[in-house]
């Protein structure tokens, strides 16, 4: 009696379910195969490294976004926060004369602080995350322009190092791997990470179970800010300068990567590995279209369709789970 199981409906091998859970990965593999066949330029060392470098910024931003989306929120400010962090770091080095390493850390701190403010506004100020971070999107970009007076600032050598090479491997790829492992560790292993899923799944149930929901939310946004800062520094490092309009609009890429990677915008679902695949899908599509000489105008059309397709899969998945 104690081990009685309750039969629930099941239909043989569930292809729909498999595809729904691994759709992004399948899509990525198909995409790479198609590009490999279509153009000899795709599967070359330099091109792959190029993809790696490009994906690093998007993916690192998207890792931070994954925390937020898993916890049931959204962060529209990550692009602006990335720019603000890089610009602050540049200012600390160039104008305030701080040592380079301190300017680097300072940039990260600025990003985390912006995230904390988002989190406080959301958890304690009761602003929906959409609104709180929409405000931060504007504020952070504005501050970036104020600090820089609209001009690029040269970054510290330590920051430029992030955009350089470690032997044959570009640093951004090294940072990407470290960031992925760290984010995955936080989300999967730590109490705060597991709590994010509970908060995103049902915040009230999480609260009544004794989870510190508000503190979790602040942490979530702080992490998103920190990862945004890292992405901003990567971007600045590659150009040896912090640009006032850097990473503008990147928040949409980050959200797209997370959603393509299988997270649900209603919270409680999402994986770092999925987000990485999502970011790769975006970048590989752009890269492939470039190689095939498709104009950037058409690229936007394709990217939009891919996002719609991915969200369609999200809906399909939820349907198959509910029936």
């Amino acid at each position: 009696m104690s081990t009685t199981t309750l039969p629930t409906p099941r239909r043989g091998i569930d292809y729909k379910k498999f595809l729904a859970n691994n759709g992004a990965l399948v899509g990525l593999v198909v995409l790479c195969l198609a590009l490999f066949i279509a153009t000899p330029d795709f599967l070359t060392g330099p091109n792959l490294l190029n993809i790696g470098i490009q994906v690093s910024t998007v993916a690192v931003l998207a890792f931070g976004m994954t925390f937020v989306i898993v916890a049931g929120g959204i962060d529209l400010s990550v692009g602006s926060v990335a720019a603000l962090s890089a610009m602050s770091s540049g200012w600390m080095f160039a104008s305030a004369g701080l040592p380079g390493w301190l300017a680097l850390v300072g940039g990260l701190v600025v990003g985390a602080l912006a995230g904390v403010i988002n989190g406080l506004a959301n958890a304690y100020g009761k602003l929906p995350s959409f609104i709180a971070t929409l405000a931060m999107l504007s504020v952070a970009r504005g501050l970036t322009l104020v600090i820089s007076d609209g001009r690029p600032i040269k970054t510290a050598p330590e920051v430029s190092f992030l955009g350089g090479n470690l032997g044959p491997v570009p640093m951004p790829i090294v940072i990407l791997v470290i960031a992925a492992l760290a984010a995955s560790f936080v989300l999967n292993r730590t109490v705060i990470g597991r709590s994010m899923y509970a908060v995103g799944g049902n915040a009230e149930a999480a609260r009544l179970s004794g989870l510190p929901v508000k503190r979790i939310l602040v942490t979530v946004f702080a992490l998103a800010g920190l990862f945004a800062a890292l992405a901003g520094l990567l971007l600045a490092g590659r150009l040896d300068s912090a640009q006032p309009q850097a990473a503008a609009g990147y928040e949409l890429d980050a959200i797209a990567a997370v959603v393509i990677g299988g997270a649900s915008l209603s919270g409680g679902l999402g994986r770092i590995s999925g987000t990485l695949v999502g970011a790769l899908v975006l970048v590989v599509i752009r890269n492939g279209l470039n190689l095939l000489n498709v104009t950037s105008f058409w690229q936007q059309v394709v990217i939009g369709l891919v996002i719609a397709l991915a969200v369609g899969i999200d809906v399909l998945r939820r349907k198959s789970r509910n029936s």
Partner: peptide, 18 residues
């Protein structure tokens, strides 16, 4: 208020002792 419906039985049993 009681459960995170999409989460597993295992997780739901453990929230208070996480």
């Amino acid at each position: 208020q009681g459960l995170v419906l999409d989460a597993s039985v295992n997780n739901n049993l453990g929230y208070a002792t996480l």
